[in-house]
Amino acid sequence: MQALGPRIKQLRLEAGLNKAALARLVGVSDVTISYWESGAIRQIGHERLVALAGAFGCPLGELLSESAPDTARVFPLTATPPAPWQPHPRQHVSLPAELLGDANLGAECYLVTPGPGEQIDYLAAGDLAAITPVSTFQRAGLYLVEYQQQLLIRQLQQGPTGELLLLRDRQSPDEAAIADASLRLYGKIQARWRA
Rank of each mutant, 00 (worst) to 15 (best):
R90D: 09
E163R: 05
L60D: 02
P76T: 00
A55P: 14
Q190V: 14
L128S: 02
L152N: 13
I189P: 04
Q10G: 00
S34I: 01
A23N: 05
A191S: 13
W36P: 01
A124F: 13
G27L: 02
L142G: 04
I131N: 10
G54A: 14
Y122E: 04
W85Y: 11
A51R: 13
L152I: 04
N104L: 05
P87Q: 04
D70S: 09
K188F: 08
T161C: 15
P160F: 12
A15L: 07
A55N: 10
A55F: 06
P116R: 12
Q2L: 14
G101C: 11
V50C: 07
V50M: 10
L165V: 07
F137N: 05
G115V: 06
S67D: 15
T32G: 06
A176M: 06
S29Y: 10
D70G: 02
D121V: 13
Q86W: 11
Q155M: 08
T132C: 15
G159Q: 09
G5W: 03
T113R: 13
K9A: 14
Q91M: 08
E98L: 07
Y143I: 01
L95A: 12
L165K: 04
S94W: 13
S29R: 09
D174C: 13
F56K: 02
H92K: 08
Q155K: 06
R90A: 14
A124H: 15
G115F: 05
V112M: 07
M1F: 02
A20E: 13
P96G: 04
L22K: 03
D121T: 01
L185R: 10
P76A: 14
E118M: 14
Q119K: 12
D174S: 12
D102C: 00
L64T: 07
I120R: 11
G45W: 03
L63T: 11
E146F: 07
E62I: 12
R24D: 05
W36E: 05
P114E: 02
A83W: 01
L151V: 03
